[in-house]
Simulated scan of single mutants.
Amino acid sequence: MFVGRRILIVGGGLAGSRTCEALRAEGFDGEIEMLCSEGTPPYDRPPLSKVALTERRDTTFDVDYDALGVDLRLGVRATGMDRDRRVVFTDSGEHPYDALVVATGAAPVILPGSGRQHVLRTAADADVLRAALRPGTRLTLVGAGWINAEIATTAHDLGCSVTVLESAPAPLHQPLGPDVAHRMLPWWEHVDMRCGVSVAEVTEAGPVLADGSLVESDLVVTGIGVRPDVAWLVGSGLDIDRGVVVDERLRTADPAVFAVGDVAARWSPRYRSRIVGQHWDDARTAPATIAAALLRPDRGLVFDPVPYFWSDQFGHKIQFVGHRDPSDRIVFREGGDGRWAAAWIDDSSRLTAHLSVDSPRHMVQARMAIDRGAVVDPDAIGDLDAPVHTMSLHSS
């Protein structure tokens, strides 16, 4: 049972904000301090690559930090920590803690070069892009992942000339695999999609490819992935491996330190592997586990949900649930009216992941089946109109 009186949260995103609420909901009446590197209170980020590119939206969370008794520090960036002294160093001084929650999120990866590269991670980034996306703008997107797919959708609708440079054979090749990626490739027909190309650097005139050719651009947005924001933890002694390593209760090896959200590399008993979520749903739901681990350890609450994320692109809503392994078998589910989905099944015929296209109902069915460890009939699941529960052989 936690007997300290001061909890420090480093990071001002969804995970940090929800941690404040979860701690109070669990009955903690001590001090809570939250450090936000941005100069604005925590806000919702998914709209940044959607409606925020066409109109200014205030997505600040409706949280009264004063009423919660949270000392909210804006514009304060962590620079290091001393676990022996239980203190976090920042650009504005030292901040002590009895328990520490690391929620610093992730930072975009950028390419070499002296040319200006834009990214989309903050509200300020969205403001810059919104002002620049005008009819005729020569926009080059480096990377064809989730965020750039959404930017490409909006930019095309706004009349921009969109070029996409992707090193893989197809968009979303890495997260979804080649079969699904190639099936989605026709969605990109209205943009200049160039797959199998590598960018050597970004110059003032635009990206230069590995073969030396220049892609002249008015605006370059780099979207080739993110890395957990852990530079400030170098020398802390915490275990870092694709993020801050934590167990299924989001605890590090130091009992006073937790990690949550994009920065956490959590152990999943369900998948018997370490998962770096980096999606909104993890940040939204995980803080309750931290609050319970600190204040009600007798409950034994663990955080091991079925992963979920969504994307809106080229007129389609994509919803992915589960965690696929490259060795899993993929089965395409076909509907009678051109609708389709994809299911991944392991060597025990257990449903491990599911991609739904324009069909929230199928996503919900699949999520429930994965949650209960359903073993399915690989032949029957190919029929999109058959509910998943009717083809389950049994649950493990």
Rank of each mutant, 00 (worst) to 15 (best):
D157P: 00
H156A: 12
A210E: 14
A205S: 14
V128Q: 13
A149I: 10
V128T: 15
H156T: 13
V128P: 00
A181E: 10
S198Y: 13
G136P: 03
H182W: 09
G177V: 14
A126N: 11
G145S: 12
P207R: 05
A210Y: 02
P186R: 10
V142D: 03
Q174G: 04
N148W: 04
I147Q: 00
E189W: 04
E201D: 14
H190L: 13
L172W: 11
S161C: 08
A132L: 15
N148P: 05
P207W: 03
S167K: 13
M184I: 15
A144D: 08
L141E: 02
A152Q: 03
V164L: 12
T203G: 07
P135Q: 10
L133P: 05
A126R: 07
A155H: 02
R183A: 14
V142F: 01
E150G: 04
A200M: 05
L129G: 04
A210L: 10
T203F: 00
M184V: 12
D157A: 15
E189N: 13
C195V: 15
V162E: 06
M193N: 04
W188T: 06
T140M: 06
E204A: 15
L209D: 02
I147T: 08
L141V: 08
A168V: 11
L158W: 00
A168Y: 06
A132N: 08
S167E: 14
H173L: 13
A205F: 05
E166Y: 02
V202F: 01
T140Y: 02
P207H: 06
L209W: 04
H156D: 09
G143W: 00
S167C: 14
P186G: 08
S167N: 10
G145Y: 04
A170M: 10
L209P: 04
H182G: 14
T163C: 04
D127L: 09
L172N: 02
I147D: 01
T203P: 06
I147A: 00
A181G: 13
L172G: 01
L141D: 05
L172C: 07
A155L: 04
P207F: 03
T154D: 02
L158V: 10
P186L: 12
P135V: 13
H182M: 15
L133H: 02
A205V: 06
E189L: 05
H156C: 05
A149T: 12
P169A: 14
D211S: 07
C195Y: 08
V202P: 00
W187H: 14
A149C: 15
L165T: 07
A144S: 11
H190E: 15
G145A: 10
R134P: 10
V162Q: 02
A170I: 11
A210M: 06
M193G: 03
L165Q: 09
G136Q: 08
A170E: 09
L176A: 03
A149W: 02
D125T: 12
A126I: 07
D127A: 15
P171S: 07
G136W: 07
T137F: 00
M184C: 05
L165V: 09
M193L: 15
P207L: 09
L172E: 06
V128F: 02
A144C: 09
R138Q: 11
A132K: 10
E204Y: 00
V197F: 05
A149Y: 01
G143F: 01
S198L: 12
I151P: 01
E201N: 11
P175W: 05
A205G: 08
S161P: 00
